[in-house]
């Protein structure tokens, strides 16, 4: 049985259909990549899965149970956590405070503080515990997004463009973390624009265009798929 099942999910905003009848299943332990042109509906899909926006139609199951209408914080406690594409800022908290809050999901306060420090070290942010997130570099802000997710001890992470805006060299650190997490059994669904990253990480790729799923296959097959090339790569190669 798949850990996460998205079944004919549709989300409309007035007359606009942002996500149209999308289905896919993610078995435990997989890294699923979701790609598509800008405005294809990827982030909306994530917001629907993670409970921030209710679906207009369709069913979503996590570990066999329907999670439609379950609030984001309950989903986190069940083991489904998301990161944000737009890096989240905190005006008056340190990075350690923010990650500690995430760690409180499953730990008492003393343990949560220690664990948060450990997670920050693990993502390569040791020594930056007492900085304000707003003062961090983009790379560190992205790492903080990862650290927040990690600290909740998830079964499944939805990563929304954690590599976007980073140079190829800068993506090495988050990629290594994603791999390591996955090797420990954490299921990962990632939306990503940086092609080399997703091609190297994902075991399977779902392509979305105009809110609809247009392809689903292994990375090496996806890059040969004519529909995908037309919808996604085509416009980039021509430009």
């Amino acid at each position: 049985m798949a850990l996460l099942e998205v079944d004919k999910v549709t989300r409309r905003f007035g007359g606009l259909v942002a996500v149209n009848n999308v289905s896919f299943a993610v078995p435990e332990g997989e890294i699923l990549g979701i790609i598509g042109p800008n405005g294809a509906g990827k982030t909306t899909l994530f917001s629907v899965i993670s409970g921030f926006i209710p679906p207009s139609d369709g069913e979503i199951r996590f570990a066999g149970e329907s999670i439609v209408g379950v609030s984001p914080d309950r989903l986190v406690r069940r083991g489904l956590v998301r990161s944000f594409q737009v890096v989240q800022t905190f005006a008056d908290m340190t990075t350690l405070d923010v990650v500690t809050t995430a760690a409180l999901t499953r730990r008492p306060i003393r343990e949560a503080i220690d664990y948060a420090a450990h997670v920050l070290q693990r993502v390569g942010m040791a020594g930056k515990e007492l900085l304000t997130p707003a003062t961090l570099s983009l790379q560190d802000k992205k790492l903080l997004e990862l650290a927040k997710c990690l600290a909740t001890d998830p079964r499944c992470i939805l990563l929304d463009e954690v590599m976007a805006g980073l140079t190829i060299a800068e993506t090495e650190a988050p990629m290594a973390i994603v791999r390591e997490l996955n090797s420990q059994g954490v299921t990962i669904v990632m939306v990503e624009h940086v092609m080399p990253v997703i091609m190297r990480l994902a075991t399977r790729i779902v392509v979305i265009n105009f809110g609809e799923k247009i392809a689903e296959a292994a990375p090496e097959e996806i890059i040969k798929d004519q529909r995908v090339i037309d919808a996604y790569f085509g416009e980039h190669l021509d430009a």
Binding site: F52, V76, V98, T101
Partner: peptide, 25 residues
């Protein structure tokens, strides 16, 4: 110094991000 303090400050600074890391607003 208690979890409540962490939750409240996270809610103050960023309500959506708070929900995303498991805080019941």
């Amino acid at each position: 110094n208690a979890p409540l303090g962490y939750y409240l400050r996270t809610i103050r600074d960023n309500e959506n991000a708070a929900r995303a890391i498991g805080v019941n607003i």
